[in-house]
Amino acid sequence: MLDNMDMKTALGETLAEEMRKNSSLVLVGADLMGANGTWPLHGEFPDRVINVGIAEANMVGVAAGLAACGKLPVCDTFAAFMARRDYDQVFISVAYAGLNVKLIGSDPGVAAEMNGGTHMSFEDVALMRTIPTMTVVEPCDCAQLRQAVKAMLEVKGPVYLRLYRKKPHKIYEDGCRFSLGRADCLTQGRDATVIAAGMMVWNALQAAEQLNQEGIHLRVLNMHTIKPLDKAAIILAAQETGAIVTAENANYFNGLGSAVAEVIAENSLSVPFQRVGVRDQFGEVGGTSYLMERFQLTASDIAQAVKSCLKRRQIH
């Protein structure tokens, strides 16, 4: 059933189910609800789906007000706007105020495709990660998204969910287990570890297959919760596999790669480490597979990074 679904459709369906169960759940959008699959819910819940127009800062402020009155608001817009345009509002009106507002940012990184550099968000995870109390989640397929949305609604406090809204590669089965803050180990290799999130999980799995044929057995960790980070899984991976590569569809400054680097350097893990990510550049137009090559995010790039780590380990 989920096999052929867009993630935005899965999002809409999951939210609809939850809205039927929880009357305090409301959706607040800024003229991109159609794009994110939330506008159709307007039919069933005319009073609980609010479109504030093209006024993102206002959207977050409005959601804060709704939450202050006991509603459970879920905001959505493009990741680019959610992180940058609303930053001061998310920081002060939501997080500092301690309000229970959920934020969904769609079209992360290269997924913005044809909208090009202005809409291509390589910094949303980094920005959200710097806000105290914020939880940052990036699910990789429809089945995981459904669980992540439920977990997001259950946990108290602000959550930023990074949403790929198109049809993903299927990785999980419907009803899969999901635990916020606990990385999923997808392959059990012992030679090196790739830590990935979102769209990059698929690339990491592809890299694992490639390397498998060369006798290198990768451990792939799906770090779907980027904050709070599963430090134990990282330390264990370093100890057991001795090399770590991170893979993110984002600027390699301040995102998942930096978060993992913090754990490695502070715990003196001294393992070869490399970050696969966008190297402090702005985006541009193009299709996803093209952009992944352009910004060196492909399975081969990950495999290459793993090999260079292994080489360094031999030298040392």
Partner: peptide, 22 residues
Amino acid sequence: INGIGSAVCEVAAGLGRGVVKR
């Protein structure tokens, strides 16, 4: 998070040696 400490950690982790306290 994300300041000088993180930037230095990025370099240290990339070198595969050293210990950093932020």
